[in-house]
């Protein structure tokens, strides 16, 4: 399969710097959670539900200085083409969880909520590459919906390197075949809250991959912002009435 043709088209018809279809909704589950969101990045679909800030069940879990963020991830058995049963404590998932918790502890103003816990539940319904990016974006929106104070958006996107060409927002086929970098960009800045690279990438190419990643992150932020404002306006119109 030709992942990137000499004519400059990728396997699904995109060019090198194009995002997949990105759609998001917030406040999707207003009754069962404090904040919720649903995102689709290409064929990757993630639901996020946020509870809190609330008092922890166990005393031991509370931190007198700041809020604890607890993330749980459930990946549906039907999320990949091959049906597969996944254990809750699978190594990859545990690692993913730790990465996410660390990312958001820095982006959420945890100091404002001492002795509380923020519970984030993730459900991955479908996977088609960019799993970590999708989850990160879903959590950002979920936290915003829950009204938890954050410094800025964390918008996340994956990027890879095909030969010498950087490619933005990889799908599964591409992800299987090249080294993938996932980054989380803070707002419209060039600061990163998250950077994950699980295989090798030549150092002299890294910069170009980071550059399209950051540009892609900014576009994702705009799309998320649009949704947040749309939802905000909707709420506002209800309050006025």
């Amino acid at each position: 399969m030709e992942l990137y043709s000499p004519e400059g088209l990728r396997i699904d018809g995109r060019r090198w710097n194009e995002l997949r279809k990105f759609e998001c909704r917030i406040n999707t589950h207003p009754n069962s959670s404090d904040g919720s969101s649903f995102i689709e990045q290409g064929n990757t679909k993630v639901i996020c539900m946020v509870q809190g800030p609330m008092e922890p069940v166990l005393r031991s879990q509370s931190n007198p200085n700041q809020a604890n963020i607890e993330i749980s991830i459930t990946i549906a058995n039907f999320s990949t083409t091959e049906r597969k049963k996944r254990l809750k404590n699978e190594k990859r998932l545990v690692e993913l969880k730790a990465t996410l918790e660390r990312t958001f502890e820095q982006s959420v103003m945890c100091k404002l909520y001492p002795r509380t816990v923020i519970q984030v539940n993730i459900h991955v319904l479908a996977q088609d590459g960019g799993l970590l990016a999708g989850i990160t974006n879903a959590i950002t929106l979920g936290l915003i919906d829950a009204g938890i104070a954050m410094y800025d958006y964390v918008s996340s996107i994956s990027a890879g390197l095909y030969d010498t060409t950087p490619l933005l927002d990889l799908n599964t086929l591409e992800e299987n075949d090249m080294s993938t970098l996932t980054i989380g960009v803070i707002g419209k800045s060039e600061k990163l809250a998250l950077l994950l690279l699980e295989d090798k990438m030549p150092l002299d190419r890294l910069e170009s991959v980071l550059a399209i990643g950051i540009a892609g992150g900014h576009r994702i932020r705009d799309l998320m912002d649009e949704e947040v404002r749309r939802h905000g306006n909707l709420r506002l119109s209800k309050v006025n009435v």
């Binding site: 060019r15 083409t81 088609d128 086929l173």
Partner: peptide
């Protein structure tokens, strides 16, 4: 197995 892939038209 049913496989669904995105296909972008330009």
């Amino acid at each position: 197995t049913k496989i669904v892939r995105e296909h972008y038209l330009r």
